[in-house]
Amino acid sequence: MLLDLLRWPLPRYRRDSAQAHHGPEGYRNLYPFKQPGFTDLLRWNWQRRRLRVEHRLQDIRRMVPDIAALAANRERPSYTWIGHASGLIQLAGMNLLLDPVWSPRASPLQWAGPKRLLPPAMSLHELPRIDVVMVTHNHYDHLDFHTLRRLAAQEGGSPLFVAPLGVGRTLLRAGAPAGRIVELDWWQRHRYGEIELTLTPAQHWSKRWALGDRNRALWGGFAAKGGGAQLWYPGDTGYHPELFARIAEHLGQVDLALLPIGAYQPRWFLAAQHIDPAEAVEIFRILRPRRALAVHWGTFVLTDEPLHQPPLDLAEALHRQGMDPAAFTVPAIGETFWLDAASSRQTP
């Protein structure tokens, strides 16, 4: 982890003046917002000192994945929630990992920073061989050096690493081979075997550790399509109806949407950059996927809401909108969803 702190060459910023989200000094959002500054951070941390939050970990469901079934699977599209934003996607006979973080802290240091309160659903050595790793942006709860280094050294050769523009240099420092990194701009696609990956826009920002690196790497979400199914994860994002209407039009039918529901309080600080459960429901209404799963919660204490609270707020939002909760469900950590048979849910 010291490598992440001590060697911090700034990402090479490749500006295309024809692109509205390529600014003079870094990338910017399609619908700009004032990004939190140092004084905002101080205010938030001062307010947090008075909070007494109880995290009822016993209310967060967990189950043991069927590791043998996942290892043998070559045909059935599936998604297994590992925890937080990390998930195993199986499409067209390939194994894809989304934002893999196995470390005990979402931090450049493993003795400080947000601590993992619930372990990953399976260990790295229990995973099937990984073909593709997708990293949505460079924040520590989505890009983890220790995990990526081990994946790059997996038996049989490194997976392909796919990430937004500017994230490649960080992936190199994390151990990914130079010839196995693909960087994408918003709406760019990359074909790998029978899989097509598309980087979709998001309302967020980027920063790792170095002074001056804010927004010099892009952020986004991923659509993964293959084997007759399409999955989409928006990445960390704030809500804007026009943005998600554009994404819905561009992607067409989405079989499974992985929608973030955690890390949203306090709203004065986080609304522009992280959706809350009610906004996740609005995205579900706009996108109209066959079904949705609630992710990006239940693992790290990153913000002020209790770790078990997001599913409760999601249930209330679905009820308020008169929507069927069976279409937008809360998985257990370790649960596998098979997308065949009309996207019906199956658990180990």
Rank of each mutant, 00 (worst) to 15 (best):
H137W: 11
S123Q: 14
I275F: 03
W268I: 02
A178W: 12
T198G: 05
P120C: 11
Y264G: 02
G175K: 01
H190W: 13
E242P: 00
G221Q: 08
A315S: 15
L2P: 02
V133M: 11
A223I: 11
A178Y: 00
N73L: 04
R173H: 13
K34C: 04
L10C: 07
L211F: 13
A106R: 11
W46Y: 13
W81K: 06
S103G: 10
H204R: 01
T329D: 06
D4Y: 03
N29P: 01
W111T: 14
S343W: 12
R62F: 02
Q35L: 12
I60N: 08
D185R: 15
Q265D: 09
P128W: 12
A69V: 05
E249A: 11
P241G: 12
F38I: 14
R214P: 00
L109N: 07
P9D: 10
S86A: 15
Q203S: 11
L6S: 06
R216W: 06
L96S: 06
L151G: 08
G166V: 03
V167Y: 04
L160P: 09
P289D: 13
W297Y: 15
L124E: 14
E335V: 08
H296Y: 12
T200D: 09
A121R: 02
A341R: 13
Q19C: 13
A176W: 05
L251I: 03
R180Q: 14
A280M: 09
D276A: 12
P100G: 01
V182R: 13
A20E: 12
I60D: 01
P234Y: 11
L293R: 08
Q35D: 11
P201F: 12
S107T: 08
W187P: 00
G193H: 08
H55Q: 00
G26H: 07
H190Y: 15
T347H: 14
G298D: 11
P241K: 09
W8V: 09
R345W: 10
D131E: 14
G238H: 06
Q203P: 00
L91C: 06
L184S: 00
L97C: 08
I60W: 04
Y13L: 07
A69C: 05
I283F: 11
R191A: 13
D236L: 03
A332N: 09
W232E: 07
A174V: 01
W338H: 11
T329H: 07
I82F: 05
H240Y: 14
A210G: 04
R288G: 02
G179C: 02
A68K: 15
H250G: 06
K115R: 15
P310T: 08
T303F: 13
F33C: 05
H84I: 00
F38A: 14
H308M: 04
Q273H: 10
A68T: 12
P348C: 08
A229Q: 14
L3Q: 10
A271W: 05
W111P: 01
R76E: 14
R285Y: 03
M1K: 10
W338K: 03
L2N: 11
G220T: 02
D141H: 09
P114N: 12
H84M: 07
Q154W: 07
V133K: 05
G26R: 05
F284V: 05
F244T: 06
V64C: 03
R149C: 01
G262S: 06
G93I: 06
L184K: 03
P32S: 07
L251N: 02
